[in-house]
Simulated assay, not measured.
Amino acid sequence: MVWCSRVLHRKYGNFVDNLRVYVRGGSGGMGLPRLGGQGGKGGDVWVVAKDGMTLKKIKDKYPQKRFVAGVGKNSGIRALKGDKGQDCEVYAPAGISVTTDDGKVIGELNQDGERVLVGQGGCGGSFATGFLPKKVQARQIRLDLKLIADVGLVGFPNAGKSSLLSLLSHARPQIASYPFTTLRPEIGKIMFEDYKQISVADLPGLIEGAHVNRGMGHKFLKHVERTKQLLFVVDVNGFQLSYKTPFRTAFEAVQLLTKELELYKEELMSKPALLAVNKMDLPDAEEKLKELVEQLQHPQDFVHLFPEGVVPRCTLHFNHIVPVSASSGYGIQELKKCIRNSLDEQATSQNEEDHREKLQELHKMKRTTEKSCRNFTAQVLPKL
């Protein structure tokens, strides 16, 4: 008897987070020398944010990855000024940065409807150009996706981030009891009774050396930049990535994660952060949690546990430390509550800061106006 089995493969190659495309503005129209006519301007190429779009959809729909705007109309007897060429719009997801090949930022798209000019059309021919159209803008650009989420889950592989996301939201990420299950970002929404929604991103697990692009290094860290807050997830029992790597306690995991973020971009340390201590259903978890909290309160007393160069320069303060169990559901409601409170506090603080900045700007404008009035009174009025 022959048994046939079907092997199911998980496909991770579908996620595209960086796309290189060619853009070219439209050529301008010819001028009309004998009547002084002006050719129409060539069309422009725009990248426009649109809900529901992904970089993979662009790649599949336009395999040549080439976008060219329309040509401007020539000047003629019936229309001395030619019509402008048709613009070309490249629809892309919100949450991308548009850069040149050498890394220069052209612009960013953060919400639906925003647009960035990437390929300028040439001016039409006129008297100033000898009635010949001017040169168009043509170049290669990169669309670099950086996820936008309210909260980003940060942790080493197998810390339970995917399981936690599935309990917090309606997302259905891949979950297994071995490292590196998550190889592409997953976003879920936490729904509250008053219809408030909070987006949470589960990102591929970090490894030591991620800041120098080991593992999924920069692919992970660039997504962290576009989250409002960080939610560290650590195993209360610690972890060991493989038999070749040393065992790390929960406290060491927190410090190593902090160091990786600090080395990649120090500005990330200014983001508000929470800590979820997972797997609290396991034996001796309570004692280990108490030990972790004590170590986090006095981290300077445990610096000797780390090799030189591994200790972060800045100590990360957590707004909330929440014990949870992704397998039993323990602490999940408390974690949701803490996430919302932390985001509300951040929004209030940001509003107050914006208000202060507006007041300072108004005071500055008032002082400038008063100074101008005094100068006018002192210099102009005596001459009248």
Results as ranks from 00 to 15, higher is better:
residue 333 Q to M: 03
residue 296 L to W: 09
residue 61 K to T: 15
residue 73 K to Y: 06
residue 51 D to H: 02
residue 105 V to A: 12
residue 114 E to C: 10
residue 90 V to W: 08
residue 235 D to A: 02
residue 181 T to Q: 07
residue 105 V to T: 15
residue 308 E to M: 08
residue 91 Y to M: 03
residue 332 I to A: 02
residue 84 K to P: 00
residue 197 Q to C: 14
residue 102 D to C: 12
residue 359 L to G: 00
residue 71 V to I: 15
residue 312 P to D: 00
residue 63 P to Q: 04
residue 361 E to R: 14
residue 238 G to N: 09
residue 4 C to W: 13
residue 263 L to S: 14
residue 183 L to F: 01
residue 115 R to T: 07
residue 1 M to G: 15
residue 122 G to C: 03
residue 3 W to F: 14
residue 195 Y to E: 15
residue 226 R to Y: 07
residue 276 A to K: 00
residue 147 L to M: 13
residue 274 L to D: 06
residue 247 F to W: 05
residue 76 G to D: 13
residue 259 K to Q: 11
residue 148 I to A: 12
residue 114 E to R: 05
residue 24 R to H: 02
residue 292 L to G: 09
residue 173 P to D: 04
residue 269 M to K: 01
residue 155 G to D: 00
residue 306 F to M: 10
residue 173 P to L: 00
residue 27 S to Q: 13
residue 374 R to C: 11
residue 22 Y to R: 11
residue 365 M to K: 15
residue 201 A to Y: 02
residue 358 K to Q: 09
residue 89 E to Y: 12
residue 46 W to D: 06
residue 275 L to F: 02
residue 384 L to M: 12
residue 300 Q to P: 01
residue 107 G to R: 08
residue 350 Q to A: 14
residue 213 N to S: 06
residue 149 A to G: 10
residue 342 S to V: 03
residue 92 A to V: 14
residue 194 D to G: 11
residue 85 G to L: 03
residue 248 R to K: 12
residue 116 V to A: 09
residue 68 V to C: 05
residue 241 L to M: 05
residue 143 L to Y: 08
residue 226 R to G: 10
residue 284 D to M: 14
residue 309 G to N: 09
residue 295 Q to C: 07
residue 171 A to L: 03
residue 127 F to M: 11
residue 13 G to Y: 11
residue 234 V to Y: 06
residue 174 Q to W: 02
residue 53 M to N: 02
residue 6 R to G: 13
residue 236 V to H: 10
residue 156 F to I: 02
residue 300 Q to N: 12
residue 372 S to D: 12
residue 224 V to D: 10
residue 8 L to Q: 08
residue 172 R to Q: 09
residue 202 D to F: 01
residue 235 D to I: 05
residue 261 L to C: 08
residue 335 L to V: 03
residue 291 E to D: 15
residue 334 E to L: 07
residue 45 V to C: 14
residue 359 L to F: 04
residue 212 V to F: 02
residue 296 L to H: 07
residue 334 E to H: 04
residue 266 E to F: 03
residue 310 V to E: 13
residue 6 R to E: 15
residue 255 Q to R: 11
residue 315 T to W: 10
residue 207 I to F: 00
residue 209 G to N: 12
residue 60 D to N: 12
residue 380 V to S: 07
residue 232 F to E: 09
residue 256 L to Y: 04
residue 108 E to A: 13
residue 361 E to C: 04
residue 7 V to Q: 15
residue 366 K to Y: 12
residue 74 N to C: 05
residue 95 G to W: 03
residue 48 V to C: 10
residue 378 A to S: 14
residue 336 K to P: 03
residue 90 V to S: 08
residue 31 G to I: 01
residue 272 P to S: 05
residue 85 G to D: 08
residue 53 M to E: 15
residue 153 L to C: 11
residue 348 T to C: 04
residue 93 P to V: 14
residue 9 H to W: 05
residue 172 R to K: 13
residue 258 T to Y: 01
residue 145 L to C: 09
residue 286 E to Q: 14
residue 100 T to Y: 09
residue 210 A to F: 06
residue 374 R to T: 14
residue 78 R to C: 01
residue 107 G to S: 06
residue 117 L to C: 10
residue 168 L to Q: 05
residue 330 Y to M: 08
residue 129 T to E: 01
residue 281 D to L: 01
